[in-house]
Simulated scan of single mutants.
Amino acid sequence: MTPTKTLRVDRIACTGKGLCGELLPELIDLDEWGYPVIKDRVVPDHLRTHARRAAAACPLLALHLDADRT
């Protein structure tokens, strides 16, 4: 069984570029200023590759994909 992956945004580092919402619209909405609003923190298996790419593409590395610690 693979560990659960969750999304997390560093709100201090994020400047609202909106790239994460464009790359992962299934899990991330953007507010009116371009800041991410995570719909569901748990990343389904079929979206893990997309979530990794979105986190890697963040210009300020404010989006994180974490392994669940439970």
Rank of each mutant, 00 (worst) to 15 (best):
H46F: 12
L60E: 12
E26K: 08
V43H: 12
R52H: 11
P3F: 09
P44A: 03
V43T: 01
T15A: 08
T70I: 08
R53N: 14
P59V: 00
D40V: 13
E22G: 15
L23D: 00
R69Q: 15
C58I: 06
D68M: 11
R69Y: 08
W33M: 11
D31R: 06
M1L: 12
D31A: 09
D66Y: 05
H64T: 13
L60P: 14
G18T: 05
A51V: 09
L19D: 11
D66R: 01
L47V: 07
T70C: 01
L61M: 09
D45W: 04
A67C: 01
L24W: 10
A54F: 14
W33Q: 15
W33C: 13
P3Q: 08
R53C: 12
G16P: 05
P36D: 13
L24Q: 05
I38H: 13
T49D: 15
P3M: 08
R53F: 04
C14N: 11
P59T: 11
T49N: 08
R52A: 15
P59D: 06
R8M: 14
D29W: 11
L47E: 09
T70W: 03
R53K: 09
A13T: 14
A13E: 15
R69K: 14
V9K: 06
D10G: 05
D31H: 13
R53D: 14
L47I: 09
H50G: 07
L7V: 01
A13R: 10
H46Q: 11
R52W: 01
W33A: 15
I38N: 04
E22D: 06
I28N: 05
L7Y: 02
G34D: 01
R11W: 03
D31W: 01
K5M: 03
G16C: 03
R48F: 12
L23P: 08
C14E: 09
L47Q: 02
D29F: 01
L47Y: 10
T4C: 04
A62K: 09
H46W: 06
V42E: 15
D66P: 02
H50F: 11
A54H: 12
L7C: 02
V9G: 11
G21Q: 02
L47D: 07
Y35E: 01
P25I: 08
A67L: 09
I28L: 03
I28F: 11
R52E: 15
